[in-house]
């Protein structure tokens, strides 16, 4: 089926008459090479390129899906951690309040005990002081009556009398009472 045609005749004539597209002498040649080209492209695409691209696209889709799932999981984990943190915080706050109250109560108790002890001590001290003051006062009264007795005795002797100790004593006591 060799469609032999002289180019001078076929092409030359076509260029004179118009479109080379309508020079049907070249059609078998064009169609043959076109089919060859299409078959090669088909083989290259279906045997090599397209399976590879499909695999890559599927892999990418899988990777993206996995990453998204992992991100979702991490997000939920973060949320759970936040929740746990908040719960722990709340718990710690409650504990702290409790501890503060307990401590306050204990301190109050200690304070009350200490106050009571201090009160007892203070009243004991005050009683002791009162006793001492009373002693001092009594001491002073005794000293005054002695001085008065001596002075009275001395005065009686100086005036030429003879001082009777018991009489003087009675007189001084009489005077001091008044």
């Amino acid at each position: 089926m060799a469609t032999t045609e002289t180019v001078a005749g076929a092409a030359g004539e076509a260029s004179q008459k118009g479109m080379p597209q309508l020079n049907f002498a070249t059609w078998p040649n064009q169609i043959f090479w076109l089919v060859v080209a299409l078959v090669i492209i088909y083989i290259v695409l279906t045997k090599i390129a397209m399976p590879r691209i499909a695999a890559v696209l599927a892999e990418r889709k899988g990777t993206i899906g996995n990453d998204l799932a992992a991100a979702e999981e991490l997000k939920s984990k973060a949320k759970a951690a936040e929740k746990a943190y908040n719960a722990a915080l709340e718990q710690a706050r409650a504990d702290a309040t409790k501890i503060i109250a307990a401590t306050k109560a204990a301190i109050q108790k200690d304070l009350d005990v200490a106050m009571a002890a201090a009160d007892v001590q203070i009243s004991a001290k005050a009683a002791e002081s009162e006793k001492r003051i009373a002693e001092i006062r009594a001491g002073a009264v005794a000293a005054v009556s002695e001085v008065a007795r001596d002075t009275a005795g001395a005065l009686v002797e100086a005036l030429g009398g003879h001082a009777d100790a018991s009489a003087i004593e009675a007189a001084v006591s009489e005077r001091l009472k008044g």
């Binding site: 089926m1 060799a2 469609t3 032999t4 045609e5 002289t6 180019v7 001078a8 076929a10 092409a11 076509a14 260029s15 479109m19 080379p20 597209q21 020079n23 002498a25 070249t26 078998p28 040649n29 064009q30 043959f32």
Partner: peptide, 15 residues
């Protein structure tokens, strides 16, 4: 748009 043999010559067969 002329179709001419690539390696010269003046015949154009189907191949």
């Amino acid at each position: 748009f002329q179709i001419v043999p690539l390696f010269g010559g003046d015949t154009l067969t189907w191949y």
